[in-house]
Design a protein around this nucleic acid. Structure first.
Lengths: 341, 341
DNA sequence: TTGTAAGCGTTATCAC
DNA sequence: GTGATAACGCTTACAA
């Protein structure tokens, strides 16, 4: 068995409580005893048992991360790797520890979350998606457990600290860019309409069209749950329309890659035959052929801010609810071109 | 404060130990008491405190995952997302929990690992890389702490349970495929030579050439640490050689994407002007333009097997050391073509 | 079949 | 300044 605080105490001829105080660097302990105890800790190779500490402190100094159903798409999408990088960065600085849900269905994830919350395994959670009627968020709210949402809540947004982009503007700007290039027939390829991000971006798209006096053609609207294969059929249908779009707003770089592929199979050239704007600006946007014009949403920062405000909330329960909006920026590359008349 | 085992005991008129036994579904408790206690647990909304349980059991039922310096490349590469999916799957089944290192330098990571090990935060670890002189693995070995390595150890491989691909054969086969297409001038673009995977694949490449009687041209060998940008200059130099290669073996799909991009900037067409074979077969290999011929190494399975054997080792310390080799398979797509004479 | 009590390794509240 | 001692919530001999 490993060396405990008691072993140190014995060897240093002090009480366990003294050792504990030395560890906490309590000002009420003399420098001399501190030195002595530290020396013994060193010699014996003492390391604190975090589990015992958690139990005594009623705090685990750990944060739980909730992914959308990891089985399918989630881990595939670099968005999550990138928020994770941000989160990791923040967490590391604050000396917290990271814990993950591993469930694949919403039900399994809920079980994971309950285990973490009730099991006192984490002090707070970061929810990486906002989905209509999500039972996980409902649970967190009911329990009044500290959490921050990455995304925009469907309701109670005055009560839920969240960090998000202004996705409506982001999509509006992307669409406006296309309109400025002379496009009037613009398709929208979105994901599951159950996710807030899909809705917001769709809304931005609609507003841009409205302001430009372009009626929305419902045939131009596609919602696919699956990142890649799924979009295929839909895109084909879209392009087979009598009056196919000359530009596409695609909700996500990865989906855009799928679209690019389908387009190339159909013999359509980007940007010559059709322009594409997507979102997120993950690494692969730049690597695509052609490089994608994409709205950068600062994913890394999303992660950093999420932990920052979560930790504030954990350490001060009276912390007011906050809404953090991370700026976005259209990165123009080579996937768009002015419409030829 | 939440409801504890004692509250349940009191409400059910039994001893705390009885409640504990009911939770563990001990056969020594009568069905009747079990029913009664369970009912009370339900009513009171009892949930076990995992921290307390860990302390009493001296086991956290948690597994730690060690990433290579996450700051840079690691999270960017879908390899890690994909192993994680596998690990996640395995872990979820066994009702273990996942914990992460968040450090960015080897030193920070080592600190994270020490905290997990000494702090009793995890029962075992999965090391996701094999690097020459790595202090993290050294530590794990010294402590005789249960871990499994994803990759091939540099030394002591009889002592370290590891799950790996036969990367030498994988690379040999990839190279042979190119040779069969008539290529004799084949470049090798690898990553950090400090990683075992780089060395093994280079070795496979060398063997294939040797068997085909093709001398190795050292000018054709490139080692770049950075996934994307890094390769750029090197690839340019390579292609500017008097006698440039007609085919490239690239260590990783993501790096291959960078290579594809650079090639296209140089006006070189793939596969017409130059053939490319890469490794890992992540999602993006298929999505690339042209779709990449890549050696599938079953990343997901790598993850699944890693947790499986780790858990065996955790639950039975006498479990023998194992070496698990996951099969690979060349997936032919459109990035290669026979050499024109 | 169930209860009692000690113990897991800390921290925190009192005393002195 | 430092030392006893009681938590924290659970498991597990050992008794009964």
């Amino acid at each position: 068995m490993a060396v405990t605080i008691k072993d140190v105490a014995k060897a240093a001829n002090v009480a366990p409580s003294t050792v504990s105080r030395v560890i906490a660097d309590s000002p009420r302990i003399s420098e001399e005893t501190k030195r002595k105890v530290r020396k013994v800790m060193e010699e014996l190779g003492y390391h604190p048992n975090m589990i015992a500490r958690s139990l005594a402190n009623q705090s685990s100094k750990a944060i739980g991360i909730i992914f959308p159903n990891s089985g399918n798409t989630a881990f595939q999408n670099p968005f999550f790797s990138e928020v994770l990088r941000g989160i990791s960065e923040g967490v590391s600085e604050k000396h917290y520890i990271l814990q993950f849900t591993t469930g694949r269905t919403e039900e399994e994830i809920l079980q994971d979350v309950k285990k973490m919350v009730f099991g006192r395994l984490v002090d707070g959670m970061i929810l990486l998606y906002s989905k209509l009627g999500d039972s996980v968020m409902k649970f967190l709210k009911e329990q009044n457990f500290p959490f921050v949402l990455v995304g925009k809540p469907f309701e109670d947004s005055e009560v839920i600290t969240h960090v998000d982009n202004d996705n409506i503007s982001a999509a509006k700007e992307g669409t406006e860019y296309l309109i400025r290039l002379g496009h009037r027939k613009i398709g929208f390829i979105g994901g599951d309409i159950g996710f807030m991000v899909t809705r917001n971006r769709l809304e931005g798209y609609r507003r841009a069209l409205a302001e430009a006096g372009i009626p929305v053609n419902e045939k131009y609207l596609i919602h696919e749950e699956f990142l890649l294969e799924g979009g295929k059929e839909a895109v084909k249908e879209l392009m087979l329309l009598d009056d196919p779009p000359t530009a596409l707003l695609v909700i996500d770089d990865i989906m855009a890659l799928g679209v690019l592929k389908t387009l190339s199979e159909l013999g359509k050239k980007v940007p010559e035959d059709i322009s594409v704007v997507s979102f997120n600006n993950v690494l692969f946007a730049e690597l695509a052929q052609p490089p994608l014009t994409s709205v950068d949403i600062n994913i890394f920062t999303l992660g950093i801010e999420a932990v920052k405000h979560l930790i504030q909330k954990i350490e001060n329960p009276k912390e007011p609810v906050k809404r953090i909006i991370i700026p976005h920026r259209l990165i123009v590359r080579k996937s768009c071109q002015a419409v030829v008349r």
